[in-house]
């Protein structure tokens, strides 16, 4: 069912990682993603993966949840892995007509798969340990300088908050409407692509109608609570850097140094 999606879901907790400032987490995540793509050999990649797993341990969230979030994009991981299998040079291990699998291809496939898996896990750390509003709040503050260029930073952050809040609501609603139409004999499981797209109309139209209704209600509820854009607004939670944030920074810097050293001292796996 669509409701079981765990990707990007906040899990409240009291761990060190939970307590980090959202801004720190955002910046460090971006840094780690850059490292992941900068790693050119198994040693440096493994270093990042292990470092990421250590962070996962620190979050004190069951590893099962991370695996579950991985399941959602398993297809993407497998697909990129398999595609990479056929590209590459080196000794040919298996051949069938124009398809051939080379040693380099296997290397590439394994490497890319680990890369994406690490990417998903470390991104999940951010979404699992940071409440949606801390996240948008952090983004809003990080992007604040952009207001100089007339970027509507507050509005973007508010849109994100509302989107995050309503995605589960709309998923559940989709489920309900689908069931209701199935009960009227709608066939959504068989037929070609055109038939399937057509079969979605009875689901999409009610979903649109209800989204507009919800938007209307929400706008009224926000008005009732004196919402007036970003002007004069305060926040309950004040984001503040602490000693932990410094440690996190140092940790990431060490990984950075490690990745550079590994990249220099070991031969590159993929080209």
């Amino acid at each position: 069912m669509v409701r079981d999606v765990t990707l990007g879901q906040f899990m409240p907790g009291q761990s060190v990682v939970h307590k980090l400032d959202a801004r720190t987490k955002l910046i460090l995540l971006i840094a780690i993603i850059v490292f992941i793509f900068a790693a050119t050999n198994y040693m440096s990649l493994l270093l990042i993966t292990l470092a990421s797993l250590l962070v996962v341990l620190l979050t004190r969230i069951s590893f099962k949840m991370y695996l579950k979030s991985m399941k959602v994009i398993l297809m993407v991981v497998l697909f990129t892995g398999i595609i990479n299998l056929f590209y590459g040079s080196g000794e040919v291990l298996w051949e069938w007509q124009f398809i051939k699998i080379t040693e380099g291809g296997i290397n590439n496939a394994v490497f890319v798969t680990i890369r994406i898996a690490t990417l998903v896990i470390i991104s999940s750390v951010l979404t699992f340990t940071t409440s949606p509003s801390d996240l948008t709040d952090g983004l809003e503050r990080l992007m604040k300088p952009l207001t100089v260029f007339h970027v509507k930073v507050h509005e973007i952050a508010m849109m994100m908050t509302i989107a995050l809040r309503f995605i589960p609501v709309l998923l559940e609603e989709t489920d309900k409407i689908m069931n209701a139409q199935k009960a009227r004999g709608a066939d959504m499981e068989s037929g070609g692509i055109i038939k399937r797209v057509k079969a979605l109309i009875p689901v999409l139209i009610p979903l649109f109608v209800s989204s507009f209704r919800r938007a209307n209600d929400l706008a009224m509820a926000m008005e009732c609570r004196c919402y007036n854009g970003g002007r004069g607004r305060t926040r309950m939670k004040v984001l503040r850097f602490s000693l932990n944030d410094l440690w996190a920074l140092i940790y990431v810097l060490i990984i950075f140094a490690g990745v550079i050293l590994c990249n220099i001292y070991f031969p590159a796996t993929i080209r």
């Binding site: 609603e173 069931n179 209701a180 009960a183 109309i201 009610p206």
Partner: peptide
Amino acid sequence: GMVFQYPEYQLF
């Protein structure tokens, strides 16, 4: 035949 809760939301 099954009529769900708030069935009006399935009209399309």
